[in-house]
Amino acid sequence: MTAGDVRTLTVRAAAKINLHLGVGAVRADGYHPIDTVFHAVSLFDDVSARSGTEGAGPVLDVEGSDHVDLTEVPLDSRNLVHAAATRLAREERRSPDVRIGVHKSIPVAGGLAGGSADAAATLVALDRLWGLELEDQDLLRVAAELGSDVPFALLGGTARGTGRGDVLQRVDDRSTWWWVLVTSPQGLSTPAVYRRFDELFPTAPARPTSGDAVERAVHSGDPVRLARVLHNDLEPAAFDLRPGLADLVSRGEAAGALKGMVSGSGPTCAFLCADAEAARAVCAELRETERERSAADARRRTVLVTTGPAPGVHQVAYERR
């Protein structure tokens, strides 16, 4: 293979928060039915796929921003990037000989679906690198086989998710919503949060709470109206497993956020703010309190301003040599 055959393609994928997360009782198959409103925000991971490698399977390299702990990120088949590359190669009856680099800004095990975002980005990167030109419905089908949040990562924007979250319908969202995200230096296991939910709510209804009110609030474009109906059924379980999160939510709201909540299964907390000025003020206040807190604890939370909705997976760079 000549140097001219080596190509690198970089794709970007956004983090998500759940504006609404209704969770039903666990089913016989071990899954919980959910009714959720996904919302992509402008915190991104970049995935670069490089051709011209030789070997038995995908090779992964992972790096990250300072606020991302990579110590628990596997580089083998347990990583959704590896699984996505292997699954797509098998689908297309080809060898998955590719080198994939991931630069993470989305925290690991943070309730922001960073692993799902990386898997979705991998599917798009390899589809283009290998010249597959798959239809959207085919990419979504493969995405759903990898995980419940992967299809939304492909789609981006704001969308209603039902079933396991993989049955999607776009939500018309023409607003710009301002958020402050507070990430944690220590992740929280999604299965552990769901197990705690089952323990706390043994009589949970089979049908999850509806996201209709949140969808209507999104249509209105009014942040005050949206703040009133933001909801996460997993929040009590996350608070129980990580009691400091409840205090963090209270501090963010006291600092001026319209509403704070745990994102997904946590531990990242998301604070909806009225506008850009309010978001910057809340961010500054929470950063100051985190500096004071970290005087006794070196593991400081990271506080970020972000907006939504953000786009789905999209290509940002292409290089050939």
Rank of each mutant, 00 (worst) to 15 (best):
G187Q: 08
S265E: 10
A254C: 09
V6H: 01
V62W: 06
D118K: 01
G64M: 10
F271V: 02
E91V: 12
R287V: 02
R196L: 11
D76G: 10
V214D: 09
G111Y: 02
M1I: 14
V26A: 12
D61R: 15
D222Y: 05
L140M: 15
T53H: 12
A113T: 00
R291H: 13
G52K: 10
S184Y: 08
V62I: 12
R99G: 12
A121M: 04
E292F: 13
R12C: 12
L140P: 08
L181P: 02
T2Y: 13
L75R: 13
R216T: 14
E135T: 07
L80E: 07
V303C: 08
R320H: 15
C273Y: 08
T203L: 13
L60H: 07
H231V: 10
A270W: 00
A204C: 08
L129Y: 07
A40K: 10
L70F: 06
R293F: 15
G308L: 08
P58N: 08
G165C: 04
T306Y: 09
L75W: 02
Y194E: 01
L21H: 04
V59E: 15
L129A: 05
E215G: 00
L146H: 01
L248W: 06
A279Q: 05
A85Q: 06
A13C: 09
L19D: 05
D212F: 10
G22D: 05
Y31A: 04
T2N: 14
R300Y: 07
P58E: 11
A254F: 03
F271N: 08
R99K: 14
V47I: 14
L168M: 02
A317M: 11
G264V: 09
A278G: 15
R301F: 09
R291A: 13
L304E: 03
V62Y: 08
D240V: 03
L200G: 07
Y194M: 05
F152G: 01
